[in-house]
Amino acid sequence: MKADEWAAIAAVASCASAVVALSAVLVAGWFARQQVIAAGKQVDAALKQVEESRKLREEQSQPNVVIFVEKNPAVSKALELVVKNFGTTPAYNVELTFDPKPQVSPHAVGDTEIEDLWYPDEIPFLAPGQEWRTLWDLSHHRFEHASLPSRHEAKATYADSSEKGYTTNSVLDWESLRGTESIIIKTVHDIAKLTEKQNEMHKEISQHLAAFRVPNAGVWTYTSDGKEEALRRSAEAGESRDRLRRLSGRLTGDGTGQAPTPIDDQTAAPHSTESQSTEQA
């Protein structure tokens, strides 16, 4: 082969090598770019996790005041308005807002007119887990008044120790209770009521037992038979008559203070008959 042919072959080989090298560079650049993109995604994911962790820590370390309604554990038909701090830090200057304002049926307050429910304009402090509650209304009375609103929009506005403000919205709806049923659970309150009732019964029994100290009062039980009891009572009655006779004798005597001799009923009748016969003769 001639020299110029070898030169051409060498040039072609050089070009091919350059193309292969360029392809290798391009492929390496593409892989490097993919690695950079993947690394960027990993960085973004890490930053997002850091941000979420920061928000979670903030949420866990902040107050969380919620307004809600809850059935009374002792009376299932009684609904209570509750303001509670579910957070892990104290809540300050808790303000309550309702739309419309909560109202109470007449039966619940012993009046004939619907009244507004009282609640504080501001609760200065709520510790973690602390709550404020009050009786709102009785469901079986409230549903008798169609003019009372059922749905209420509630909002709690409060701050943490650094005076950072928070707001929690909630919905209070009486219709969610309509038609519901509850299981009666006995609590310490029921035990206290039962104990109070038993104390009243014991007091009444004690009063009846105290009556036994007074003669002819209460219920008396005798262990002797009826004949002996009749004889005893007859003797007591005789003694009572003798005392009355002696007292009568002192009152009607001749002033000596001596009672006249009692006259037996069996001897008095013949004596009277004899005297009457003499007068007739």
Rank of each mutant, 00 (worst) to 15 (best):
D264P: 00
L172S: 03
I185V: 15
G253C: 11
N199M: 05
A211I: 03
A211H: 00
F212D: 07
N169K: 13
K197Q: 15
P262L: 10
D190F: 00
P270Y: 02
G253S: 06
T261E: 01
G257A: 00
E196C: 08
G249A: 09
D264K: 04
L209W: 01
T223F: 14
G255S: 15
E236H: 09
P260R: 02
M201G: 01
R245M: 05
S248A: 10
E181L: 15
L247F: 09
V171C: 03
R245H: 06
E181P: 04
T180D: 05
L247R: 00
R232V: 05
A217Y: 09
S224V: 03
T187I: 06
I183L: 10
L244S: 12
D173R: 14
A269E: 12
E196Y: 00
A192V: 03
Q266K: 14
A268W: 01
V219K: 07
R178Q: 13
P262T: 07
Q266H: 09
R232A: 06
K197S: 14
R213S: 13
R178E: 12
H189L: 01
D242C: 09
A217H: 06
I183H: 10
S248E: 06
A192C: 01
P260N: 02
G218D: 05
P262K: 13
G218T: 07
I191T: 11
M201Q: 05
M201N: 03
G165E: 08
I185H: 06
A235M: 04
G257S: 10
G179Y: 02
K227T: 10
R243H: 14
G238A: 11
N199A: 12
R233W: 13
A235T: 04
A259G: 01
